[in-house]
Design a protein around this nucleic acid. Structure first.
Length: 473
RNA sequence: GUGACUAUCGUUCAAUGGCAGGACAAUGGUUUGUGGUACCAUGAAUGAGGGUUCGAUUCCCUCUAGUCACCCCA
């Protein structure tokens, strides 16, 4: 036993072992691209990439379930799209000038020479799939939902990772603002169901390209006259992406833009009517929203409705939990038929973070109520079959087959909090019986193996009744 | 991408220019066929590389990672 343990220790590639192997060939610091030498095995996940360990999974499980349930209830079909697409797809849909494309895209060239990128969001890939598979012939609206990792090459900190999980919802083929309201309602439902209470929606309308152009012109004209009061960044944005200046957090820019013309005043009549009825729907739903005229969003394909979901806690730490908007022109711009669409994404990492912060309940997995202990070689052999028989009969069984002593196994059993332990020893294995031990009363009896399931179920059942009738403290 | 702070067993907290210590967790045991407690034992760490030094985990530099602020968003 002890020998085995030691032997098992040795081959594990610790940091030290890895270094020892390579210590002879210490490389001089190179100024080449890779930051870590390839000869050295670094047992460390990449920057901004993390493991979601078993301890945290119950929270994730609850979020995943909540999202897929909501998706089903609202009539969304699941779709999976690749994590990698042609670089051009993202550039064409999200557009240069946005941070996501200019700074945060994970792009590389394949062996075959294709320029590709890891998806920074879902909508581009889903729009591509929509066109590629001719989904426009399907009855409208077409509701698609997806969940998985997306990638952004950003500088990580809490709640911000280079690999992050999103739940994504898109609706194609309908431009009625009631869809916008329903999509926001759906986002709200998910977040509320998970126990997050301090939620605020911010909504805005950025109109259509024509009205946007008119507005941008007016905005630039206004800001140009006071250019010197803007921050360095915003001075550049003036020519590249002036609307993002509204999003700037610099005091002087906020001051300046608070007097600036507002997008809402430049909306075309249709967009204005669209926005107005969206707000009416939202009022009808009694959702906690506010209009944020500065809300612009980091993706350029949006038209008309844009919104974000914010969670704030008392310490003033705020996270955007999700966001989305309408993108009525994207499908056509990518080469499909003109198709209005709206969608949004939820950030699972941040939702989990918020759930922990407000002490929301994680998903509770089904716990085994029965433990199977075995003693001796014959019993050990038989116990594997017994385990599967019990499982087939709907009895979830825990075990510790690797352990030899009964004492150790019972210790595990009681730590797991099981109500029944089945003990299969040498003697029992020979005469096809087993000991059924009630872990609460401590009593036990020997039963024939073909009666085992019934005996176990009887004890479990009486325990359930007991806990129902006994008063709770 | 910019700036600041941080880095010790699986977790958490100590300590030191001269043998790195505790707690929790883990594993084994307390006469090997009966559990939760208790007791005993065991294994387990100075992120990586370089420099200063007789000697560095401690001081200095670089890298890596994390956290915070900015940027941005999820």
């Amino acid at each position: 036993m002890a020998q085995k343990k030691q032997a098992a220790k040795k081959p594990i590639a610790t940091k030290k072992a890895a270094v020892q192997k390579t210590e002879r060939k210490t490389q001089p610091k190179t100024e080449s691209k890779p930051s870590v030498s390839e000869s050295e095995l670094l047992l460390q996940s990449l920057r901004g990439m993390r493991d979601i360990l078993p301890d945290e999974q119950p929270y994730w499980e609850r979020v995943r379930r909540s999202i897929s349930n909501a998706a089903q209830e609202y009539g969304y079909s699941r779709i999976e799209v690749p994590m990698v697409e042609y670089l051009h797809l993202f550039v064409r849909s999200i557009k240069e000038g946005t941070d996501i494309i200019d700074k945060e895209l994970y792009s590389f060239t394949t062996r075959g020479g294709d320029r590709v990128a890891l998806r920074p969001e879902f909508t581009a890939g889903i729009a591509r799939a929509y066109i590629q598979h001719g989904m426009s012939v399907l009855p409208k609206p077409i509701k698609l939902f997806s969940m998985g990792p997306v990638f952004r090459y950003d500088r990580p900190q809490e709640g911000r990772y280079r690999e992050l999980w999103q739940g994504n919802f898109d609706v194609f083929g309908e431009d009625d603002p009631i869809l916008d309201a329903q999509v926001i309602q759906l986002a709200y439902r998910v977040v509320r169901e998970l126990g997050l209470k301090d939620i605020e929606f911010q909504v805005n309308s950025i109109g259509v390209p024509e009205s946007r152009k008119r507005y941008e012109k007016a905005l630039v004209r206004y800001l140009e006259s006071q250019k010197h009061k803007l921050c360095q960044n915003c001075r550049e944005r003036l020519s590249t992406n002036p609307m993002r200046i509204l999003d700037c957090k610099e005091d002087k820019c906020i001051q300046l833009t608070s007097q600036a013309p507002q997008a809402l005043d430049f909306l075309d009549d249709e967009s204005r009517a669209h926005f107005k009825s969206l707000l009416e729907y939202l009022d009808e739903l009694e959702l906690p929203y506010s209009i944020n005229p500065r809300l612009v969003r980091g993706l350029d394909y949006y038209t008309r409705t844009v919104f974000e979901i914010w969670s704030s806690d008392r310490e003033g730490k705020k996270y955007a939990l999700g966001g989305g908007g309408r993108y009525d022109n994207l499908i056509q711009e990518l080469g499909g038929e003109p198709t209005p669409a709206i969608g949004f994404g939820l950030g699972l990492d941040r939702i989990v973070l918020e759930m922990k912060r407000v002490h929301a309940k994680p998903h509770e997995p089904v716990r085994p109520r029965v433990f199977l202990a075995q003693l001796g070689d014959l019993a050990k052999k038989k116990s594997l079959r017994l385990f599967s028989d019990l499982e087939k009969n709907g009895i979830l069984v825990a075990e510790s087959f690797g352990r030899g002593s009964l004492k150790a196994q019972l210790r595990v059993a009681s730590r797991l909090g099981v109500e029944v332990t089945i003990i299969l020893g040498q003697k029992e294995a020979l005469d096809e019986t087993a000991i059924v031990k009630d872990m609460i009363s401590g009593t036990q009896e020997t039963v024939r193996q073909d009666k085992l399931t019934d005996a176990v179920k009887k004890i479990l059942k009486s325990n359930v009744q007991l806990s129902h009738s006994s008063p709770k403290n």
